[in-house]
């Protein structure tokens, strides 16, 4: 169960670079425990901190206007690289609930939906316009719109991801509603492909 996502209004922090990989989002060395929490301090650690781990004033999330930003604007292929879900957990724990980019790594996008973070796809030019706009922007997931001042952009999202985000749904519970169907399928499959089922 993740926090349901319906609407969100926030300033949007621009980090418009292509190929922001999960190691930039949270470096491997910041994943200090086996759990899912305590990761916000490691978010963008390589960029956010100087060598002595004091804040790097040049990094966007350290600038006063964007400290509380719940929306991140990014470039192509956001979340590429390692499949580490810690990238989503760290973003969410820091307070980022939506990332707007021209494209996402598929693994990251799947993780984001499960972690209650909206991976929102808009064209590069629209993102540039959002970055140039003043003040907060609003995301309405049920209506699939992003509003900045008088400008409204529509976005696409697949129905499954949308339903999961809005309901904060746990995918395992949803799937287990079909448990009988899964068991039936496996019974037939066991006859068809017995070699798949190790241990008899």
């Amino acid at each position: 169960m993740s926090t349901p996502f319906t609407t969100l209004t926030s300033v949007a922090a621009p980090l418009i670079e292509d190929n922001i990989d999960t190691d930039i989002i949270i470096p491997s060395r910041e994943m200090k425990s086996t759990g899912k929490t305590g990761l916000a301090a490691g978010l963008f650690a390589g960029r956010r901190y100087t060598q002595g781990r004091s804040e790097n004033p040049d990094f966007v999330l350290n600038q006063s206007a964007y400290r509380a930003a719940a929306i991140l604007l990014a470039g192509d292929n956001f979340g590429c690289g390692s499949s580490r879900e810690h990238a989503v957990w760290a973003l969410a724990e820091h307070g980022i609930r939506a990332v707007i980019a021209p494209s996402f790594s598929p693994i990251f996008a799947g993780n984001a939906v499960r972690g209650g973070v909206l991976p929102l796809v808009l064209p590069r030019a629209t993102i540039a316009a959002l970055a140039a706009s003043e003040g907060a922007i609003s995301i309405d997931l049920p209506a699939q719109t992003v509003t900045a001042g008088a400008r409204v952009a529509d976005f696409n999202i697949d129905a499954e991801a949308k339903a999961m985000l809005i309901g904060g749904l746990d995918a395992i519970d949803l799937t287990l509603q079909a448990a009988d169907r899964i068991a039936d399928w496996q019974r037939v499959d066991r006859q068809r492909r017995p070699w798949v089922y190790l241990g008899g």
Partner: peptide, 11 residues
Amino acid sequence: VIATTPGGAAI
């Protein structure tokens, strides 16, 4: 494919 979900995904 075991089933298709209402959201159009496959199980």
